[in-house]
Design a binder for these strands. Structure first.
Length: 358
DNA sequence: GAGACGTGGAA
DNA sequence: TTTCCAAGTCT
């Protein structure tokens, strides 16, 4: 049987087509790539990355054969960099598989690194027309409002309830269309803060609309606490060269690069920072003058606010051999490394000042 | 199961 | 300006 919700949703979808580059293909590689890019990411933000990455890595083999550095560089600026590292790992998983082709069952797709229940259902339906219902933020929102469900979507009970409901509502003859329809509907009509209830096809049935609880739904129980961190960057440089290092810890921006940093839990006066560094074994010990000090920059992220300051010091202030992990590179090569936006912004400003002074 | 993980657009 | 949050997954 097919529910009236499903029938009307499919009608809406047919009348409101939405063009996106990954919708012109049945290539599971490209569909998988688009789904990873779109995790927690707006279509408009992911679109250019999809174009760039499919051009750079046209097949899963190209991606698997790339170096992790290249993959991270391609992902630079998109955020949630674990996605890029998992994407790369999954590409290797796929090409090393004895069957030698993209996995084509829900369970095997789910087994790929970085692919959870949502992405597995999306890939299974879009690439292979398998009857699996997607459950993402759009689906939570649309279903919680339409059916007036106030169970928290991020609780175990809520997740189970919504998955089961989504499974029942799925048009099993048309899983790709149905999944695309409900996500588009959530993105274009049943929006989080500015839903288009006035023109909504479900105005007569929607419980939230009828009970004036549209803005209470969906219910989320968790609230992210914001943590504060202070990053004191040491920019060792001369006209031609600079020292950078790669972030390798299980922490934000893993795999990207930065300047050598001293992290503190509270504000660190620049003089104290310099004093601390000058006491390390790597400081040459001569009386070094500081080139310049940046203002404190507040970089606000979803779960933490990072206060950053950059202290520029002549590269000659550091003793050889360099500390483990430090890379002395030509400034012309900076563009070949991946950096978090915080660092990219600093570099861009630096370049602009250079240009401006000439 | 709670907490961690980025960025940029919209209100 | 600040706050919210977008096609989630991993640990």
């Amino acid at each position: 049987m097919i529910f009236s919700f499903t029938r009307k949703l499919l009608q809406w979808h047919a009348a409101n087509p939405r063009s996106m580059p990954w919708k012109n293909t049945k290539d599971p590689y490209k569909i998988w790539l688009s789904e990873i890019i779109l995790q927690q990411t707006r279509v408009e933000q992911g679109w250019p990355y999809y174009e760039r990455i499919t051009k750079k890595f046209p097949t899963v083999k190209h991606l698997a054969n790339a170096r992790e550095e290249e993959v991270l560089k391609a992902w630079e600026g998109l955020g949630y960099y674990t996605r890029a590292r998992n994407l790369h790992a999954a590409a290797k998983q796929i090409v090393n598989d004895p069957e030698g082709k993209f996995p084509s069952t829900y369970e095997r797709i789910l087994n790929l690194k970085g692919v959870g229940p949502y992405s597995a259902a999306a890939i299974a339906s879009f690439a292979f027309d398998l009857p699996h219902a997607v459950v993402d933020g759009n689906v939570f929102r649309v279903l919680s409002r339409y059916f007036g469900i106030n169970e928290a979507v991020d609780s175990a009970k809520g997740k189970k309830l919504f998955s089961e409901l989504a499974r029942q509502l799925l048009d099993k003859k048309n899983p790709a269309d149905y999944n695309q329809a409900i996500m588009n509907f959530g993105a274009l009509v049943c929006k989080p803060s500015t839903p288009e209830c006035a023109i909504c096809i479900f105005k007569k049935q929607c419980i939230a609309y009828k009970t004036d609880t549209v803005f209470e739904l969906p219910v989320k129980s968790k609230k992210a606490a914001v943590r504060y961190r202070w990053f004191n960057f040491l920019v060792l440089e001369n006209d031609k060269e600079v020292i950078i290092e790669k972030r390798t810890a299980k922490d934000i921006w893993k795999g990207l690069h930065q300047f050598p940093v001293l992290e503190t839990v509270s504000y660190q006066a620049q003089s104290d920072f310099l004093k601390a560094w000058k006491q390390t074994a790597f400081f040459k010990g001569e009386n070094i003058k500081v080139n310049g000090i940046s203002k404190v920059i507040a970089h606000k992220l979803t779960h933490q606010t990072i206060f950053a300051q950059f202290i520029s010091v002549p590269i000659s202030a550091v003793k050889k051999p360099l500390p483990e992990g430090w890379l002395r590179i030509k400034k012309s090569r900076l563009k070949t490394f991946g950096f978090p936006v915080l660092i990219s912004n600093y570099l861009a400003q630096f370049r602009n000042e250079e240009d401006g002074s000439k």
